[in-house]
Simulated assay, not measured.
Amino acid sequence: MEHIRIGMPVEVNFDAYPGKVFRGKVGSISSGTGAEFSLIPAQNATGNWVKVVQRVPVRIELESSEAPLAIRAGLSAVVSIDTGLSTLDRL
């Protein structure tokens, strides 16, 4: 999350459309995790202090004109955000 900014280029690959790459950009980044804004947030009152994975919603705006027709809720996707850093820069 440290290097992701609004407007960065994105590539999305959906399992339902193998070989098809949808391009877009980062449209927005949520100000909190998904659990923070849920109607009934999960409570951990058992004294178990194991760190739970948190997901920060990132909105992707697709550029492809065919994207609204082809994409359906629930599809599995792999999203790649070009932060401009090489793999070595991230270490």
Rank of each mutant, 00 (worst) to 15 (best):
K25E: 07
L69Y: 15
E66N: 13
A35Q: 11
K51H: 08
S76T: 14
N44M: 07
V78C: 01
D15S: 13
A77G: 04
E66F: 14
A16K: 15
N44T: 08
M8T: 03
K20A: 06
V79I: 15
D82Y: 12
K51A: 07
R72A: 05
R23D: 05
K20C: 01
V52K: 12
S28P: 07
V56Q: 13
S30H: 04
S76K: 14
W49Q: 12
G19R: 08
I71M: 04
P57H: 00
S31N: 11
A45L: 12
V78T: 15
A77H: 10
S64W: 02
P41Y: 14
E11G: 02
K51C: 05
V26M: 00
V26N: 02
V50A: 06
V52L: 10
D82H: 13
T46E: 13
D82V: 08
S28L: 10
Q54K: 12
F22N: 03
V26T: 00
R72F: 00
G34E: 14
A16L: 15
G47I: 11
N44K: 11
V58W: 03
L62W: 06
A67K: 09
T33R: 00
D15A: 10
Y17M: 07
A16W: 13
Q54S: 06
S38G: 10
V78R: 14
V12F: 04
K20Y: 13
G27D: 10
E11T: 08
P41F: 12
A70S: 13
R59K: 13
S30Y: 06
I81H: 04
R23W: 04
V58L: 05
L69K: 15
S80K: 15
V56K: 11
W49S: 05
M8Q: 14
K51I: 09
R23C: 02
E36K: 11
S30R: 04
A42K: 11
A67W: 08
Y17R: 08
M8A: 03
G27W: 03
F22K: 03
P9H: 12
P18K: 07
V10T: 02
N13I: 11
A35D: 11
A70P: 03
S76D: 10
V12S: 04
S65P: 00
L75I: 03
V21G: 01
P18H: 06
I81Q: 04
R55I: 12
S38Y: 11
R72S: 10
S80H: 13
I29Y: 05
V52N: 06
R59C: 00
S28C: 08
P9Y: 10
G27N: 08
L39Y: 07
V10G: 01
I71S: 01
D82N: 15
S65R: 00
S31K: 10
S64N: 13
G32A: 14
V79M: 10
R59V: 09
I81N: 00
L75G: 00
W49H: 12
V50D: 06
S80W: 05
G74C: 08
V10D: 01
F22Q: 03
A67R: 08
T83G: 01
T33A: 03
L39I: 06
E11W: 02
F14Y: 15
G34Y: 12
S80V: 14
T46G: 09
S65A: 11
T33L: 01
